[in-house]
């Protein structure tokens, strides 16, 4: 759906209850628990939106980063 490296999942730390449900469904393992805090590894995120729709407490949102101008090898 997306391209690696063009997306970021913003995490609302006040709303997030660290249930890690999103970690268990992220198809690229971009979301992970750093200790007891949820983090997103942007270069791995493909912007599929699954975690955003999954999050039971609506703590996640998807943001497009400024896309790289060209792909290295096209």
């Amino acid at each position: 759906m997306g391209r690696n490296g063009s997306f970021h999942i913003a995490i609302d730390d006040v709303t997030c209850v660290q249930c890690a449900g999103c970690v268990s469904i992220c198809p690229t393992e971009a979301l992970h628990m750093q200790g007891l805090t949820l983090e997103c590894h942007d270069p791995t995120c493909i912007g599929c939106d699954l975690c955003v729709r999954f999050c039971p407490v609506v703590a996640l949102s998807l943001h497009a980063l400024s896309a790289p101008p060209v792909r290295a090898e096209a």
Partner: peptide
């Protein structure tokens, strides 16, 4: 209280 999570 609030509990959330993935139910597999």
């Amino acid at each position: 209280d609030v509990t959330a999570g993935g139910v597999s």
